[in-house]
Amino acid sequence: MTQLALVIDLNVCVGCHACVTSCKEWNTSGTAGYMADMNPFGHDPTGTFFNRVQTFEIGEFPNTETVHFPKSCLHCEDPPCVPVCPTGASYKRDEDGIVLVDYDKCIGCKYCSWACPYGVREVDEHQKVMKKCTLCVDRIYDRSLPENERKPACVMACPTSARLFGDVNDPDSEVAEAIRERGGYQLMPEWGTKPANHYLPRRRTRITIHEDELTRVDNPLNKERQLPMPDKDAPTLDDVTSW
């Protein structure tokens, strides 16, 4: 069964927020209506976003590492937000596993946002319905776009290719291979939601070298150095031997 998802490589994410802005740009111009920004220039601005990049510091100074962490709907294989919806507005598509909200059926009761442990659903203050990442469902099947652009807007925008997109259930796909071979993991596995989106961990390139490997025991140079240098006046090999 197809399960489209994102695989996000924390090793190369630089936290530039390009995915956030391109997501907002694409989806706010979408057919489902804009993603409202309330008081954008006022005292207490607020707005709807499908994607955020957060920053965490791991460790204690001076041994710290900064991790930029993009967060959007994980399109869980067992999404806890879907069964709680009283109207059926929140649903998971059988054909590609994308979790979507039918904005015409949503009554704006916010129950699904309570039932999502990841906090990736947001009420749109203008439309008064629940909104969330659609995996750019209006892009990825758009035949008017060139084939290499049929990807979510965030994936297109990422300058470091930290975001991969594909079918995680197809063992030959780029994303499945990345999960398999580069240690892909899921968020909050303790709740059994089976998120389809995976994250690739930070990896420091490191060679393990032992002390004795730094000097070669059988280094021929060492042998030569052990011998005293012959005296300047001493006869050379050429003087004492006749070839």
Partner: peptide, 29 residues
């Protein structure tokens, strides 16, 4: 609580501090 920052972002370290939530204004979250 079963969920911690460690499971939330999947990084195994005893000391994780959030430095930014990605925006400065308010949000639904």
């Amino acid at each position: 609580h079963k969920s911690t920052l460690r499971t939330a972002i999947g990084i195994r370290h005893t000391k994780i501090v959030q430095k930014s939530q990605g925006f400065m204004a308010g949000s639904f979250n």
